[in-house]
Structure formats: C-alpha cells, structure tokens
C-alpha cells in the first residue's frame, strides 16, 4: 500500500513542522536562558531567595505541563489581557522548561567540590571570577547531558499546545486525519517528522553521557 494520503498532505504537514520548529527554537532558547539565570542565582543569593527559587522549581516540576498551559491559556483573559493563544501557551512552556533547567544548573553547580572553591579563594580570586573561571566550566560538563535530554523533552512537549487549539504539526495531523481518516499513515508520518527532529539531539545527549562517564 502506498502512503498516498501522507504524500498528498505532506506540504501541509511540513508547514506545521515549520511552526513546531519555530516554537521549539523559541521555547528552547528562552527556557534554557531563563533557567540558567535562575539556577545560577539560586546558588548565590540569601536564604529567602533560595527558598523562593526552590518553591518555583518544586511547584512547576510537580505539575503536568498541560495544567500549566491551561493556566496560561485562561489566566491572561481572566486578568483582562487579550493575548493570542500561542503567546499564552508559549510563555507557559518557557516557564515550565525553565524550572527543569534551573534544577539541572543548580545541582550541577552544587556538585562542584567545595575544595575547588576554597582553592580558588586561597589564590585571592573574587567571587565572580571564581564562578566564571572555576565553577561554571566544571558544572557545564556535568549539566550538558541532562540539559540535552531536557531539551528533547521540551521539543516533544511543544506538541501539547495543539490541545488548546494552537496550530502546529500535531494540530495539522489531527486535521488531516479527521478529513481523510488515514490515521496510521498520517500519525506515523508525523511521528517520523518528530523523530527526524529529535533523534540527532538524542544521539548528541548519549555521546555526552558517555563522555561524562569516561571523565568520571
């Protein structure tokens, strides 16, 4: 059986894939940056700041992203703002991803042995240069594999925006299936598109994991 339906609808689906890619790039860049800042700040502020950040991370990581997206979707209008749906859920996705990134960054920084910091201090280095020259380079090596895996999850979960009516690849797939009823062809085809986007990242993550294992 030739996958005719898939081929006929491929241009439409690829348009959806483009939106998925755009959304992924925005969410990944903003989510990782925000999480990076929060994670670094978490290790260098006072107790109250730490508690706030801990709460931020704990709450977001403990709730399904779908629920966070519902909040984003309904909260803006409830507060009196008129915001397009894709902006509302995009913001929700960015915030959600940032919590995971913050936790990865924070625990990577904390896993740098305290002796390293003591040694740097004894050389007379200042706090900022200790962070920049000593802590972050070591933490980066630890954080990269989980960050890559987290990005993989983030890309896959952009598909959930379709549930609240934002048009992208998964939404387009559902439209085509409703019209043609060719669920296997279309969904498998669309999953293949996601696979093509995700798999290279997956391989990269695995390579970094192996490299980290060798260093240890």
């Amino acid at each position: 059986m030739m996958p005719n339906v898939l081929i006929n609808n491929l241009p439409y689906l690829l348009k959806g894939a483009l939106v998925t890619l755009e959304l992924s790039v925005v969410v990944l860049i903003a989510g990782n940056l925000l999480g990076l800042v929060i994670g670094i700040v978490a290790t260098s502020v006072g107790r109250i700041g730490q508690s706030l950040i801990t709460a931020y991370i704990f709450v977001l990581r403990g709730i399904p992203i779908l629920v966070i997206m519902l909040l984003g979707y309904y909260a803006f209008p409830a507060l009196g703002y008129r915001v397009p749906a894709y902006v509302a859920v995009g913001v929700a996705q960015i915030i959600y991803v940032s919590a995971f990134v913050a936790e990865i960054v924070r625990s990577a920084i904390l896993s740098v042995p305290s002796g390293q910091i003591a040694a740097a201090r004894s050389l007379g280095m200042r706090r900022f240069s200790i962070l920049k020259e000593i802590v972050l380079p070591q933490a980066t090596r630890i954080a990269i594999p989980p960050l890559l895996n987290n990005s993989l999850t983030a890309i896959k979960q952009t598909s959930y925006v379709s549930v609240v009516g934002v048009w992208e690849l998964t939404y387009a797939a559902r439209e085509v299936v409703e019209r043609t009823l060719a669920s296997f062809q279309i969904f498998l085809g669309v999953m293949a598109i996601y696979f093509i986007i995700c798999y290279p990242l997956s391989l990269l993550a695995r390579r970094w994991e192996r490299r980290a294992a060798v260093v240890q």
Partner: peptide
Amino acid sequence: EFMRNTPLLLQIYL
C-alpha cells in the same frame, strides 16, 4: 528509539 523520540500525545492519538 522511536518511542523515546516522538511525542507521547501522538502515540496516544495513534
């Protein structure tokens, strides 16, 4: 690999 690199939502739809 296929399961790990495609969205769960689509797997459920499928």
